Amino acid sequence: MQIFVKTLTGKTITLEVEPSDTIENVKAKIQDKEGIPPDQQRLIFAGKQLEDGRTLSDYNIQKESTSHLVLR
């Protein structure tokens, strides 16, 4: 499924993911596309910070959901 990640600069990154993917996996995909190390990434969805060990389905992130990327 596709999800979108919006950066603070207003850029939207499109990612191909599975509901069973962990947040860690998603951060690795963002690193592949954008070159941002996962330890600098914070992903926010529905006002919550997403934890590495959880999956997209844990957070009820469905296709075409948009989460926000904040850099630390």
Rank of each mutant, 00 (worst) to 15 (best):
M1Q: 03
Q2K: 14
F4C: 08
E64S: 11
L50Y: 01
D58F: 14
P37C: 07
L15E: 00
T66I: 13
M1R: 03
S57G: 09
T55N: 05
P19I: 08
G10R: 04
D58Y: 15
A28D: 06
R72L: 15
A28P: 00
K11A: 08
P37V: 05
G53A: 10
I36W: 13
T14H: 07
L71A: 06
F45L: 07
K33R: 10
G47L: 03
I36T: 07
L69K: 01
I13C: 02
F4H: 10
V26F: 03
S20A: 08
M1H: 05
I23V: 09
T22S: 08
I3H: 03
I30R: 00
Q62A: 10
G10H: 05
K6P: 01
G53L: 08
N25T: 14
G47P: 01
G10C: 09
K29W: 04
E64P: 06
T14A: 09
T55M: 09
K11E: 07
S20T: 13
T14V: 14
S67D: 10
Q31W: 15
S20L: 09
T12R: 08
S57P: 02
A46G: 11
V5D: 01
L71I: 12
A46I: 06
P38C: 09
T22I: 04
Q49V: 15
Q40S: 08
I23Y: 01
I44D: 05
V70S: 06
T12E: 06
Y59T: 02
V17T: 03
E24W: 15
E16D: 12
T14M: 12
T66V: 13
T9H: 13
L56N: 00
L43A: 00
K27L: 05
T22L: 10
E16P: 04
V70Q: 10
A28I: 13
S65K: 07
L50P: 01
V5C: 03
A28E: 09
Q40T: 08
E18L: 15
I36N: 02
S57W: 09
P19W: 08
S67F: 15
D21P: 00
E51F: 07
I3L: 09
L50N: 01
I3T: 01
V17N: 00
G10A: 03
E51D: 09
D39G: 11
Q41V: 09
G10E: 03
E51W: 05
V70P: 01
L56V: 07
P19R: 06
L71P: 07
T9F: 12
I23T: 04
P38K: 15
I61R: 01
S65C: 08
